[in-house]
Design a protein around this nucleic acid. Sequence first.
DNA 1: CCTACCGATCGGTAGG
DNA 2: CCTACCGATCGGTAGG
Lengths: 202, 202
Amino acid sequence: MSIETTSLSKSERTRRAILEAAYSLFLDQGYHATSMRQIASKAGLALGGIYNHFGSKEEIFTAIFTEKHPYHQIVPLIAASEGETVEDFTHNAAHALVDALGHHPDLLNLMLIEIVEFKGKHVPKLFDSIFPKIMEIGTRFNRFNGQVRPIPIPLLMRAFLGMFFSYYITEIMLAGLMPSGTQEESLDTFADIFLNGVKRQF
Amino acid sequence: MSIETTSLSKSERTRRAILEAAYSLFLDQGYHATSMRQIASKAGLALGGIYNHFGSKEEIFTAIFTEKHPYHQIVPLIAASEGETVEDFTHNAAHALVDALGHHPDLLNLMLIEIVEFKGKHVPKLFDSIFPKIMEIGTRFNRFNGQVRPIPIPLLMRAFLGMFFSYYITEIMLAGLMPSGTQEESLDTFADIFLNGVKRQF
DNA sequence: CCTACCGATCGGTAGG
DNA sequence: CCTACCGATCGGTAGG
């Protein structure tokens, strides 16, 4: 952010400020509970000024949803993970993810907002740009031929991503309430379960 | 609903009507996008009438969250599932759940609304009433001594519930977008992965 | 990009 | 339980 910002046009910088402000407010309060006035105030301009950059409140959300969706961080990270065996790869990918997402489960909130407040209506458009990358990861698993049980690649990918969703969601819902050790241990266990779950048995 | 309703006092019937109306509206639109006027209209009374039964909009949500939370359906179903082996038990529980929840993933929405729009602030109170039941299920897994790898019971329960969350969430996000076979096949695969994941290897 | 404004709708209440 | 109303706030716009 620091390097880029200085080289952006003033209009572009304002646009980013609006997106950043709206992004953090949406994560914190959800979409409908966030007002255009809050966004304007946090972005440092008057209410009316927003409409020079976005046509409506929903247009702001759409821009955020497609530009800042965690998929854009998650998928490349997984794709960049290394490992000769399924074990290595799964663990590396799992930890790269959690390291990068920090322990900020609210990154998932963008997706949850989309489900709760928009009934997933923006998903199809986003999906088009992401599907190829997901299948790319699928081929990574294919390379571990014989190490993985015969599960259709799309389902395997769904389960792999699902592992993270379930980790984060149960963390949000149960964090601190269940006596379940540290977060790292929990993730390791989740990764282990997935790993043993997809591995071919000998 | 049919048998009970007739034996309830008029006031109690109105209360239920309000809860039912609000429930379906919340699932459909989320909390902040649903107005008290919509709830009143759908429940068949005037706006002011609601306040004879609930002190505020949030009080309605709190009542719904604690009374109609899917946990109340999920946990007993799992507890009632049978099976001599971990395999049988896991599969029976998984299918009992999906049969009962129908294929209505939006039942999960209550929980997602709580996360997105309330930041989980009602969870602790709900958790108190549910924790014992969850641990009860944990002891079920304990009975399968030697069949399951040594995973702390709370973590095992978290992973088990997480399996369903991830199934439903990925279904919402990817349903129809990914070429991944029927829903039943997908659930079976999810259950299989969990099962092989927690099973002790021989 | 701001000021000043629009009509609409919000949650909630008084008074009967 | 309804009618009629409250002040506050909403998303959005005109005009400069």
